[in-house]
Amino acid sequence: MTAPLLEIRNLSIVFDTAEGPLHAVNNLSYSLMPGETLGIVGESGSGKSVHIMALLGLLPSPPARVVSGEILFDGENLLKLTEKELRNIRGGKIGMIFQNPMSSLNPVLTIGRQILEVILRHTSMSRKQATAHTIELLDLVGISAPASRLTQYPHEFSGGMRQRVMIAIGLACSPKLLIADEATTALDVTIQAQIIDLIQNLKEKSGITIIWITHDISSVSTLADTLQVMYAGRVMERGPFSTVINDPRSAYTWGLLRSIPSPSMHSGQRLYQIPGSPPNMLSPPPGDPFAPRNPFATPRCHRDTPPLRQVPNSLPGHMAAAWYDLPALLSLHPEASDV
């Protein structure tokens, strides 16, 4: 049994606002094995990006405050490291790809410089070697004539091309972990598919460990080994990707899946919408945070917070936080699955 590359234990993060503490991440625990690709899905405000920023030491503090927990990466507790030690990990052992390739690259610096600087920072390569490596990287992410592109600026690249450059930056120092935060959200559908294809290839070639954060389950379907659904700073459900989407046990997962358009839908059929809106994290509801929006909620859901437990009669590793038995409820209300 190999040790996990990343293990998060009981992580809670609070933002101190003028209206009081905002509970962004609540008692979050999960682990990630080397070579695994984890898809994290959730609405904005689910804590999916916040805990990643905490992991990288990039949360502005104040207002953010890690209340409890630890983040073990490669045997070290990242929360205990100094800013200097964290800097050595960021961009080195952990590569990051951000959402908006338009604004995530510095508009007044050349593409070459923006890739080169991360290589020079974390490796002992000479400038010449680093330049050669930069060209290799651009080639790897599918940018044609890479050598001539080094002196160009971001505005001379298309959106998809810029995201390829961001991926090159993320991969520049051969990281153990690559984190992509909504990496394809701002792109056209066809470009999205190309980028996901590229990541898929890289994964097969190098066996890199990936965390892919998105609000759109369909964008991780070809990529993720494991799917983790987050809501209100908690994990609602996680497990092998196909198991979770074929046999969801959390009403929130079920709702997310129902709201994706599928080719089998007949015309005139309305797309499902999860009723209500995400909870106000200044005063989160007691019990299951999703209960107020859950048509299947039981009285207990409104009272006690369900723990994340192994789902009985499912694959090992399929875990859900729910007091109710979703498949049983769905069979009682066949009309619900047909909304």
Binding site: G91, G92, Q99, L105, E117
Partner: peptide, 17 residues
């Protein structure tokens, strides 16, 4: 506040850089 500064931090660059 710009995204590219966040990128620069995520690269582990020195504050002076």
């Amino acid at each position: 506040q710009e995204d590219y500064i966040r990128t620069a931090r995520a690269k582990g660059l020195y504050p002076t850089t």
